[in-house]
Design a protein around this nucleic acid. Sequence first.
DNA 1: TTGAAAGCGCTAACAC
DNA 2: GTGTTAGCGCTTTCAA
Lengths: 356, 356
Amino acid sequence: MKKRPTIRDVARQAGLSISTVSLVLNNKEHVSEETRRTIQRAIDELGYHPQRSARGLASRASGNIGFLLSDEHFSQAEPFYTKIFLGTEFAARDLHYYILLTTVGRNFNAKRSVPRFLLERNVDGVIVAGKVNERLIDYIATFGIPVLLVDFEFRRKMLSSVLIDNRGGITIALDHLIALGHRDIGFIAGDIGHPSMSERHDAFRDVLASRGITPVDRFITIDAPDTDIPNGFEAARKILGGETSRPTAVVAANDAMAIGCVQYARSAGIKIPDDLSLVGFDDVELCLHTDPPLTTIRVFKEEMGRIAVQRLVDVIRSQIPAVNSTRVPVELVVRGSTQPHSVPVVAGDIGAPGLG
Amino acid sequence: MKKRPTIRDVARQAGLSISTVSLVLNNKEHVSEETRRTIQRAIDELGYHPQRSARGLASRASGNIGFLLSDEHFSQAEPFYTKIFLGTEFAARDLHYYILLTTVGRNFNAKRSVPRFLLERNVDGVIVAGKVNERLIDYIATFGIPVLLVDFEFRRKMLSSVLIDNRGGITIALDHLIALGHRDIGFIAGDIGHPSMSERHDAFRDVLASRGITPVDRFITIDAPDTDIPNGFEAARKILGGETSRPTAVVAANDAMAIGCVQYARSAGIKIPDDLSLVGFDDVELCLHTDPPLTTIRVFKEEMGRIAVQRLVDVIRSQIPAVNSTRVPVELVVRGSTQPHSVPVVAGDIGAPGLG
DNA sequence: TTGAAAGCGCTAACAC
DNA sequence: GTGTTAGCGCTTTCAA
């Protein structure tokens, strides 16, 4: 446990002053190349690393970024937001920041349960992932530090955000199904207050219509309170369990609900993909382990985290609070849960069921 | 963005000195109750919170705890270590610490890729989760800060650790199966270099023997390089796919491998639980979604994280580097993948297959 | 281009 | 019990 060198030691070793060392440490200008090299050599020789607390105190910047996530989102079985967090961690490392993660309850209350890193001025900016209370955002704003939303936005507020190209995802999902011959296509979603969910729903209706297919309300269920597997199961029952005709394909607003759909289908004797084609959204690991593996829309979660940190650090460093939203592209991953729609040739009725 | 009050403001407001305020902030003794109350009132009125960097600089303690995890562990599909991390986060919040997470490559090299929080003296202690390189531990030791291992330990090193009661878990798993009438019991594991894995394996053999059942080597596969689903699939094939008799029950060293086993069984036409009872280990979310849901040994992952932080903070605060290991108990969760062993009554051969 | 010096907000001796 | 004061290791004017 040898005592670590300080900036003073570096200055002495280099035969220069500590302020010049500081200039070099912070990559400031007005330092001759030679001096820079001399100091760099001293730094390397001593194995010097500036101490975070001292820097923080002197510069009034903590070097930390807060990552705020709702309890519900974090404890979700599927590590969707965890992957985003991981991405922030990687980007932060490159940019010499630390990420401080904290979860917040859905019902934010400024009188209690305030993220400590705000009160202690221990973050230079905050990334908020997923759905949170609007008051929380307002509250953070009172601290005068930049905020960036990931996979969330407010209708009435101008805030920088990193978002999923939900519309693009639904578009390629539908075009995939339509190319396979499907016309009777259902849709299931939940937690429709989440922007990603409502965007996917809106896009579903718009794109379908734009392809000349009228969305059938009976095939659409979006009132589930949450987007987990049991809710997907129930939603699937509503769409597939009726007496009347049912869709030949379903788009689920996320993979968890798609898996619920798989489970319902199995319980109801509906074969995937023979009787029903199914497309999920998000591409979480679970997709790989369903039977059959799930065709889905891949979301680059880690990449979203990376971008979020880069954007936020840009704002922190430049002090320019420009508002900008980034849509991260998605891609279609075709696995086993979709196949061409086969028109029953020996069926009693004419053509495919429910074609209209 | 109002300027935040400092300790100076509190002192002025209370009509006392800043050192007395400091004493109150740090819950030190030798302060009269009245003074304490006066100062507390001033603190509340001003909404004062001590600034982390300043505290850190003056006290040479960062107030942070490092959480070190190997890349492989973090990117695992199943959020096993993520749950542990979450637990550390919760405990840290209570104890007014922050967790700084960083991943490290399996091949630690002190010349490069050193966790930055060590170099910058930005953590007061480090929690290492899962299997890591021994040199990394040695390296951390050179910084003179306490280290605590979670779900890992070194044979030759005395280090505090929070461990799973692996032996206890295997014991209840086996007793469960034995109570159901199973005698021919298989075992699959992987990554046997991980202490938890080898402990589970050793326990399997010991406990079985202690119950009067001789472990059958043909029913045991532990040479998979990793513990994921595909490796479980392959391991299951080795045990169940042979020409000769096969076990009527299998214990998998973790749930992922158990799920691989489920998948193999399905592909081979082996029905669970009718033809084969299966017990996993860990109780990750995935267990709930297999068909049938998996009987498993529940590990209290979040609790392990909590305990780790509490232990580590104890050491940090007391400066007493006592070495102690905690075994966190586990429990049996019976779901659908186990059932009584049914002796075929109308079979051609006598008694159950492979009974010996 | 470099150096001297004044803090940043707090803790911790040490006086009183 | 409470106050005074000297730093902690750095950044940042401001001079030189």
